[in-house]
């Protein structure tokens, strides 16, 4: 069987094996979640971020199985491969986006995902209360998802947003750092 690039895998699954729903349903539903959390935590945006991260984590640990089931892909040989899979397959399948992978650190343990497009934050304008713009990471659920999903493949990572266009920054950037590998070895080769 020919080896496929992550991008090809992502595209293929996206086109053929996914049942689709209206994007606005997801955008609006996620919006209602964030709005509800802000109410529940009385606009303590730090707590909202934490809750979103927790929810994302719970999703991530189950979502990874979904990806592995759909793609039958090989184990990643390096953290760089992992990054490619996250962007071209993971985000492609679930959000139909492929964030750019940039700013690798010297030791190849840190990289950034740059989001040009993000269905979760379509049409969102942060509240004008002076706090949200400094404290809320609207799409923070994605950090949790990454953390949960990668933990299931034995990678302990830290993921957090460092900038967000909703806050007036130029880009929306998530920084992903590999803390440690949870297993002794990562077997190379076909599953």
């Amino acid at each position: 069987m020919a080896v496929r690039t992550p991008r090809q895998i992502g595209e293929d699954v996206w086109k053929t094996r996914i049942e689709k729903v209206n994007a606005e349903l997801v955008t609006l539903t996620y919006g209602s979640v964030v709005a509800q959390l802000c109410k529940d935590f009385t606009n303590d945006y730090i707590q909202v971020n934490e809750q979103l991260d927790k929810m994302g984590y719970n999703i991530g640990i189950r979502l990874i199985e979904d990806i592995l089931a759909r793609t039958n892909s090989e184990r990643c040989r390096s953290f760089k491969d992992t990054a490619e899979m996250i962007s071209k397959v993971g985000f492609k399948i679930f959000l139909n986006i492929t964030p750019a992978i940039l700013n690798w650190s010297q030791d190849n343990k840190q990289f950034s995902l740059i989001f040009d497009d993000n269905p979760l934050s379509d049409f969102v304008e942060l509240p004008d209360d002076g706090k949200a713009i400094n404290e809320l990471w609207y799409s923070n659920i994605l950090c949790g998802v990454l953390r949960g999903a990668l933990e299931m493949v034995q990678l302990q990572v830290e993921a957090k947003f460092v900038s967000d266009v909703l806050r007036g920054d130029d880009t929306t950037e998530m920084r992903v750092t590999l803390i440690r590998v949870l297993e002794d070895e990562m077997p190379v080769g076909d599953e």
Binding site: K20, V21, L25, I59, F94, N96, P119, F123
Partner: peptide, 30 residues
Amino acid sequence: RATVYDRNMNRRAPDLALSTFAFLFSEMVQ
């Protein structure tokens, strides 16, 4: 920057995976 007011309402975003909604919804329930 471009604001939401610059978006074209008639350009419908392409569909997303049902699983995305399902995962999000199950967390909402939890």
